[in-house]
């Protein structure tokens, strides 16, 4: 394995890691906001849960785009 391949693989790995950081922060914020909202208004928990899952799914979708790109880089190099 030459240096260029190694650097490309490092790029894919570091990119996937950065995406994980961002998605983690995003889903954490969504979760904390949802918990606060349910604590303030327990009777609206159903609606809040729906919105929470929706937001989490959108964040997760972005994360999966980037994970897919990292996977593609890995496959082209390999």
């Amino acid at each position: 394995m030459d240096v260029g391949t190694g650097i490309t693989l490092i790029g894919a790995g570091v990119g996937a890691g950065l995406v994980a950081i961002g998605a983690g922060i995003g889903i954490g914020l969504i979760g904390s906001a949802a918990v606060q909202a349910v604590a303030r208004q327990p009777e609206a928990s159903g609606k809040i849960q729906m919105l929470m899952i929706l937001g989490a799914a959108l964040v997760e979708g972005v994360a999966f785009f980037c994970a897919l790109i990292a996977f593609l880089i890995y496959n082209t190099v390999k």
């Binding site: 799914a57 997760e60 979708g61 999966f64 785009f65 994970a67 897919l68």
Partner: peptide, 13 residues
């Protein structure tokens, strides 16, 4: 596009 990639990537991952 986002809809299809989300489902696909979740299952594959």
């Amino acid at each position: 596009f986002a809809l299809s990639i989300r489902l696909f990537a979740n299952i594959v991952a």
